[in-house]
């Protein structure tokens, strides 16, 4: 019996041994770009290390990664470049770490954005996740620190969460490398468009604001028919975001 379950594991496509090769710092000639975003202290850098095989230092304090770090891995003959973005609580203010994270997701157009959240503090972490889902529709939610959540008697219904957010959800305990093979498989499925995401968009917006945002995002779509995040750009324009206005003036939203 025992033997068989072991074999099952190896046969499963999630199993590590198959296509994974950790590439460390070698990021030349990659096929896909993956961004790693999330609140501070959710173990993003640990996930980064688990994926790339790098041993980037991970301190237990918020704000450890202030610049972006990059690394790579290859899975099923495709090379992935991974960017570890600074941990932030939101993308709505203008501190430098938030700008770095925001600009990379908005202008760097990663093929997949992995949103790392703390399973034990889901509500607070979702604030950032919802903002990211306004910007990109190619995302995976990595429900990290499952071990700590368990110790706090907290459980998360992953399926409902995935259905609600419209993106795949993978539970991990990156410190112990649990769930990493599944995460890699899911990243690859989203990158290869085998999984189609239909991300949740912010609701409960007051009517008068909703109306203005709708009008403006329609107006933006008239000029840029294929833009995935017209609503987010409308939010930012209405808030007088200088960088986004500049991007508009310089044609950075042009779809190639």
């Amino acid at each position: 019996m025992k033997n068989q379950s072991h074999n099952n594991c190896e046969g499963c496509e999630h199993f590590n041994a198959g296509g994974l090769k950790r590439l460390g710092l070698d990021v030349k000639g990659f096929d896909f770009v993956v961004a790693l975003a999330g609140n501070p202290n959710t173990g993003k850098s640990t996930v980064f290390n688990a994926l790339t095989g790098l041993r980037q230092h991970t301190g237990n304090w918020p704000g450890k990664t202030v610049t972006r770090a990059e690394g790579g891995f290859s899975y099923n003959d495709k090379k992935y470049k991974l960017m570890d973005l600074p941990g932030t609580y939101s993308l709505l203010s203008t501190s430098q770490d938030e700008e770095i994270a925001r600009n990379f997701i908005l202008f760097g157009k990663p093929d997949v954005t992995v949103i790392v959240v703390d399973a034990g503090r889901l509500e607070r972490n979702l604030n950032l996740a919802l903002q990211i889902l306004e910007i990109t529709d190619q995302a995976v939610l990595c429900l990290n620190l499952m071990d700590e959540a368990k110790r706090q008697n907290i459980s998360v219904d992953e399926r409902s969460l995935a259905r609600r957010l419209g993106i795949p959800v993978v539970a991990t305990s990156a410190r112990f490398e649990e769930g990493i093979p599944e995460l890699i498989k899911t990243i690859s499925d989203v990158a290869e468009k085998k999984i189609k995401c239909q991300p949740y968009r912010i609701q409960n917006i007051p009517a008068h604001i909703q109306q203005a945002v709708d009008q403006l995002s329609h107006r933006i779509e008239e000029d840029y028919p294929n833009i995935p995040n017209s609503r987010w750009i409308a939010f930012r324009l209405l808030e007088n975001d200088k960088r986004v206005i500049e991007a508009l003036e310089n044609n950075e939203f042009e779809i190639a």
Binding site: S90, L92, L122, E123, R124, L126, N127, A129, L130, Q131, I154, S155, V156, D157, E158, S160, L161, R164, L165, Y200, I202, Q203, N204, I205, P206, I209, F235, E239
Partner: peptide
């Protein structure tokens, strides 16, 4: 806008966290 995001986040979290 911030308020809307918070409301949504707490609603979703309520549904899925036990």
């Amino acid at each position: 806008l911030t308020q809307s995001i918070y409301t949504d986040a707490s609603k979703i979290a309520d549904e899925v966290v036990k």
